[in-house]
Design a protein around this nucleic acid. Structure first.
Lengths: 193, 193
DNA sequence: GAATCAGGTCAACACCTGTTGGCATACTCG
DNA sequence: CGAGTATGCCAACAGGTGTTGACCTGATTC
């Protein structure tokens, strides 16, 4: 897993390409983030992008590599569970653009959608298992939390809707925390049709 | 506003193009829904698409024309407000693909994003004004409801995540209704940081 | 100092995009 | 029946796409 490769003279360029790719994919989605546009932003020739990363798809895979780092439930006081989680998710979305990229691409490109499923299955569901009680319930709990967090992130960070983008963070947390907390801790209504 | 145009012999073809466009835009987003793909699905030549609708953008504008039809608050008993609204939104998403189209395109294409803002401003916010008490609060209430509904729709109808797509409708409503109801009726926390 | 090689540019490829104009057909109306 | 027109297909356009190979240049190594 480690990379004992010696530093290459082209490392700066490789990094510039990766940075430019992050920016273009996040802002424009997969199709409109062309290899030429990425190269232009990185200040090099389009052929270098392919030479160093092989393929546009491979470059994209390098860009969307995210660790959610959901906190350990044992370190959270029960009464502020929702608050801590919402704050953590907002931090994630604001720290860098990788989640914006993932959402933007996942909606239109199959590779992006699969990457989203990976993150959900490998990180969100296991976290829900650590929080919840019934492991069979974890995917549903994780999905509910994801629905609220993704919806808000869509409006605030992707579409940048006025009311969503301008709401002060503290107020946002106050609104969402009870929702997230209930999705994790409330007893299942279990289709009381 | 009315259309007293006489029926043309090409009406069937025009409708076929519109149907195909709806399907392609909904499934593939704006960029991947090519004029050629739409024409192929409609069983006609690509040039006909342009001849009848002028431009790909104009065709898209024809496709994303949606009326949310949010019910009148005076016809809803206070204790089932959340349930009625969530059911209504689920109906909208399941009835046809126009909302899936709007979400899929809005995330990557500027024209789609603007169309989403239109729907929000012209339909969702006024509805929130009818429900809520303080009109200055309406955009925020509408935005909160939209965040939960859009997030769930994203998982269930666009990405078709397993846990979201498979949850029985009644259970889904039972989970979301209290959230939506609170976003509309609860007193504002107003940034109690 | 000469040989080697990585870093980078240029031009081109095969293909796909939205869009346009010309041409055949078939229907409609006198 | 004949003129006119709406309907549709075909071929082509100008431009953009990801990707490839030939080539130049400057640093590294013997």
């Amino acid at each position: 897993m480690s990379d004992p490769l010696p530093p290459r003279r082209s490392d700066a360029t490789r990094a510039a390409i990766l940075d430019a790719a992050r920016a273009r994919f996040a802002e424009d989605g997969y199709e409109r983030a062309t290899v030429r546009a990425i190269a232009r932003q990185a200040g090099i020739d389009p052929s270098m992008v392919i030479r160093y990363y092989g393929t546009k798809e491979a470059l994209f895979a390098r860009v969307v590599d995210v660790a959610l780092g959901i906190p350990d439930p044992r370190e959270i006081a029960a009464e502020e569970l929702g608050t801590v989680l919402v704050e953590h998710f907002l931090d994630l979305w604001e720290r860098d653009a990788v989640l914006v990229t993932l959402l933007r691409v996942g909606v239109t490109h199959p590779a992006g959608a699969e990457r989203m499923r990976d993150v959900f299955r490998d990180q969100l569901v296991p976290a829900a298992e650590r929080f919840g009680h019934d492991p069979a319930d974890a995917p549903r709990r994780a999905m509910l939390v994801a629905s609220q967090v993704l919806g808000m992130a869509l409006l605030r960070y992707v579409l940048r809707f006025g009311p969503a983008a301008e709401m002060p963070r503290a107020e946002l947390v106050a609104w969402l925390a009870p929702t997230v907390e209930r999705y994790i801790t409330a007893p299942s209504p279990a289709a009381a049709a």
